[in-house]
Design a protein around this nucleic acid. Sequence first.
DNA 1: CGATTTTGACCCGCGC
DNA 2: GCGCGGGTCAAAATCG
Length: 187
Amino acid sequence: MEGENFPYLFEPSFPLASLNSPSFLDQPMNNSQYASDFDLANMLSGSMVNGGENTVFPSLSTNSRNTNEGENVNKNKAKSGRKKKYIPPRVAFHTRSAEDILDDGYKWRKYGQKAVKNSAHPRSYYRCTHHTCNVKKQIQRLAKDTSIVVTTYEGIHNHPCEKLMETLIPLVKQLQFLSKFPNLPSC
DNA sequence: CGATTTTGACCCGCGC
DNA sequence: GCGCGGGTCAAAATCG
């Protein structure tokens, strides 16, 4: 199963593995390298419109013990004979912020924290709390410029963003109501 | 009292 | 095979 099954999949134009390397994190900010072409609205809306089992990403988890996902990863590897293991889509955002945790509209549960080499600031690991969704994100600060927060998303949400819906639904209802009166003067 | 965070242990891939 | 480092687990602590 590959990325083209997912309508909003974003393929970063840089090597995925470099996301974790200190050299990537120390690079000067160049938005064209990662997030410039990414549609934030698409990220927030998720890919639930597609429905079906394909909307759940097959191998968001890298651990191979006690989980069906891990078994699938191993099976796929054995079947295709691929030497490289599958790496889920990742998107990294650089944000200048005093806050580590940026509100992206989704609810996250922290599941780990690790010290980062050559950096005073730790890296935090979060998972989306939605029960059918196993999107993850990592948050850390740049070693070179600690005013910048790096948020790395892994996977695609398979459900709507609650906060976005809270905002959108009243607007849609109002539009539906107003559409019943096509002759109303415009403001 | 359920949900979330904290944190040390554990697992696994990779380089040597 | 061994050690290191990144990522995850899970029990205990904390929060709302």
